[in-house]
Design a protein around this nucleic acid. Structure first.
Lengths: 150, 150
DNA sequence: GTATATGCAAAACTTTTGCATCCTT
DNA sequence: AAGGATGCAAAAGTTTTGCATATAC
């Protein structure tokens, strides 16, 4: 289905900024992007799309189910294409790299825990912050690494 | 051990603002507090402690291991006393209430997943966002509730 | 007494909003 | 043509920082 129809099906008008931003998420090298990341790409392409519009479109896309938002410990909201497959995140504390994973057992236990506490899960988010052991980790330091919670 | 010694053991001078803030975390009704929450309590007590100091002390306390910081979907950093017992959080989307839980199976699976991906876990954070089914949920609405990711 | 911590104000950053103008339908 | 969408600039909200003064050791 065309992106134009994809937008219309969600009730959103197929405007140029929305098409451009959707396309960026479909084609960018990095899957997880902040509003600023998207804006930077738009600037590089000389699209005259304002930062406020980027924020508005990202919020609308999340509402429409096209994107998912995550709040990692950076303090900035991060968006990614919603492909309908729920997953959790593993974030490298050294380089910020994000990997995705899905573990059925973890999912099951989460629902069990919520039930026990009298909650009904609508959404959940799990982020593991760790140090990747890759030699080529760009931000790798010789210093012992910070240990954060988020 | 006295709070004065507790601070000194971590290498922090036992200043009045630090003692006051530590005491607030030890005695407040709510376990999870933002910088603003702490500052509000200080204002109520007419302590002349600035907001900037609150932020600085919270960061130092986290560094020192006295507090743990979490970033829920609110966008504000939340702190709680570190009692050495790792746990995860269940956050009510209606009232913001935070419950804590620990599930050994989830922990085990998290380590397994990280290993598979070539990561070494130093810290991790899991937050389940859900709707509590309590009748007395303060912010309870009749409206269907927002479904967020974080 | 010296180094560190604090208060205040200003700045930095991310995100939101008001409003006139423009675009999609 | 009409209503929603956009751009710009200003505002809002959280957190950080510069600097003179005050405090702990």
């Amino acid at each position: 289905m065309s992106n134009i129809n994809e937008l219309k099906n969600t009730g959103l008008k197929a405007t140029l900024p929305r098409l451009k931003i959707l396309e960026i998420f479909q084609t960018a090298k990095q899957r997880h992007m902040t509003a600023e990341d998207v804006f930077r790409i738009l600037l590089d392409e000389r699209s005259d799309i304002g930062l406020a519009t980027v924020y508005r479109v990202l919020a609308q896309f999340e509402q429409a189910g096209l994107l998912n938002r995550s709040n990692f410990e950076s303090g900035k909201a991060v968006y990614e294409i919603n492909e309908g497959k729920h997953h959790d995140h593993l974030v490298c504390l050294d380089c910020g790299k994000v990997e995705e994973f899905y573990d059925a057992e973890i999912e099951k236990r989460q629902h069990a825990v919520a039930s026990e506490k009298g909650f009904t899960i609508s959404e959940h988010s799990l982020s593991i912050y760790a140090n990747c052991t890759k030699v080529n980790c760009p931000n790798r330091t010789t210093e012992p690494v910070r240990h954060h919670h988020a």
